[in-house]
Structures are given as C-alpha cells and as structure tokens.
C-alpha cells in the first residue's frame, strides 16, 4: 500500500514537473512574442514616418517612378532601410494576427502558429524580393 502511494506520488510529481516545464515554455513563448511585437512596433513607427515623408517629398517634387528607382539604385541606404522595414513588418503582422485569430475565431495552438509562421515567411520573402529589385 505504502509503495503504491509512493509510486502514485512519484507519478504525480513527474506529471507536475512536466506540466511546469510545459507552462514555462508557454510563458516564455508569450513573453518573447510580446517583446518582439513591441520592438517591431517601435521600429515600424520610425520606418512608417520616414516612408510617408519620402512619399510626400516625392509627390511634392514631382519625382517619377523612374527617378525614384534610380535614387534607390544609387544608394545603399534606402535598400537597407526598406530591408529593416520588411523584417519588422514580417515579425509584427503575424504576431498581431495571432490574438485576432484567437479572439474572433477561437483558434490557437501549434497549427495556428505554423500558419502564422508561414505567413511571416511569405511577407519576408515578398518584401526581400521587392527590396532586392529596388537595390538592383
């Protein structure tokens, strides 16, 4: 009887330890999602302002699309800037979609995370392709 109890307690302890470890991973994943979303938002805030300012500059100075592309080709700064922009967007958008999918559709879990990771890859690939084209 006593050994039975010990065994049961052992199993309970093992299960608890497993549950704690799993909960720790869950908590760290949530914390890092939070950190990455805030960090990417901070980067995007700066990028969007510069992007809008450059659009306003281009329109007010009557720059054609060819002139804009030519300036992009001439400098390493603009492609580098848009590369940062693309990475921040690829990180930020899927992290923002995650709670929307959770709250509106009631979906969460590894399947959702896999789809969102794929979405991040698509955003990143599309963005990198566009930046590479601009960089010539």
């Amino acid at each position: 009887m006593a050994s039975g109890h010990a065994e049961t307690n052992g199993i309970v302890r093992a299960t608890n330890a497993q549950a704690d470890a799993q909960w720790g991973r869950h908590a760290r994943f949530a914390a890092w999602r939070f950190v990455l979303q805030r960090a990417s938002a901070a980067v995007l805030a700066v990028c969007v302002v510069i992007h809008l300012a450059s659009i306003i500059y281009g329109v007010r100075h009557g720059l054609t699309s060819q002139a804009i592309v030519a300036r992009m080709h001439a400098s390493a700064i603009w492609p580098a800037f848009y590369a940062v922009f693309v990475v921040a967007a690829a990180v930020h958008a899927p992290l923002g979609l995650r709670p929307i999918v959770d709250e509106w559709l009631g979906l969460r879990g590894r399947g959702v995370d896999a789809v969102l990771a794929l979405f991040a890859c698509v955003l990143l690939a599309g963005g990198v392709y566009a930046v590479a084209s601009l960089a010539g």
């Binding site: 720790g24 869950h26 908590a27 760290r28 949530a30 914390a31 709670p99 969460r108």
Partner: peptide
C-alpha cells in the same frame, strides 16, 4: 507567479 500570469490567457492578452 510571473509564469502563471504569462501566456495566451494571461497578462499579454
């Protein structure tokens, strides 16, 4: 306690 309040149903929500 910080682990308990972090997660899909925790403070980040």
């Amino acid at each position: 306690r910080l682990r308990a309040v972090a997660g899909d149903a925790g403070c980040q929500a």
